[in-house]
C-alpha cells in the first residue's frame, strides 16, 4: 500500500490542474493569474494546466472577496470538483475581504464560504507569488508522508 500511495501522491504533485474563478475581484488578480499561465512563466513545466470545467480540476484558484451574489455559485462549483480538491485564495481580498470587508454586499474572504488550503496575499499578488503559493501547497501534500 505504501508504494501505491507514494506514486499517487507523486502524480498529484506533478499534475495540478487548475480552475480559475473570479468571486468578485476587481480584475487585477485575474490578470496576474493569467500572466502566470502565459509562456513567460510557462507553468506547463510543472504540469499545471488551466481547465474549463470544475470536473477536471484539482485546484480552485479564487480571486476577490465573496459577494452575496456569487456565494451560491462558489459553493456549487466547489461541490462539482472531484475529491481530493484544494482551494487557493489569491489576493488580499480573497484572503480576508480586504478593503471591502464589512460592505453590505460582501460576505468576507473565501474562507467564509468554503475551506481554503493556501492564502496568497498581495494587491494584486504577483505571478511569482502565485506560483510560490501553489508550489508551497503542493509541498505540504508531501510532508506528512515523510
Amino acid at each position: 500500500m505504501g508504494l501505491v500511495k507514494k506514486i499517487v501522491t507523486w502524480a498529484r504533485i506533478k499534475s495540478p490542474w487548475i480552475l480559475h474563478f473570479n468571486t468578485g475581484a476587481c480584475n487585477a488578480c485575474d490578470i496576474e493569474i493569467i500572466a502566470a499561465l502565459t509562456p513567460r512563466y510557462d507553468l506547463e513545466r510543472f504540469g499545471v494546466q488551466l481547465k474549463g470545467t470544475p470536473r477536471h480540476a484539482d485546484i480552485l484558484v479564487c480571486s476577490g472577496p465573496v459577494t452575496k451574489q456569487i456565494e451560491d455559485r462558489l459553493v456549487r462549483i466547489y461541490e462539482q470538483m472531484p475529491e481530493p480538491k484544494f482551494v487557493v485564495a489569491v489576493g488580499t481580498c480573497a484572503c480576508s475581504g480586504g478593503v471591502f470587508n464589512g460592505c453590505y454586499n460582501i460576505k468576507g474572504g473565501i474562507k467564509s464560504t468554503i475551506p481554503v488550503s493556501a492564502f496568497i496575499p498581495g494587491c494584486p499578488a504577483s505571478p511569482k507569488a502565485i506560483i510560490d503559493g501553489v508550489v508551497k501547497l503542493l509541498q505540504s501534500l508531501e510532508e506528512p508522508k515523510k
Binding site: V8, A11, K14, S15, D42, E83
Partner: peptide, 20 residues
C-alpha cells in the same frame, strides 16, 4: 516554451485514476 517533463502524461494519467 520549455514544455512538460517526460513523465507528465503518466503523472496526469495516474492522478486521474486516483481521483473521485
Amino acid at each position: 516554451r520549455v514544455g512538460p517533463p517526460w513523465f507528465q502524461t503518466f503523472a496526469d494519467f495516474i492522478k486521474l485514476l486516483a481521483k473521485e
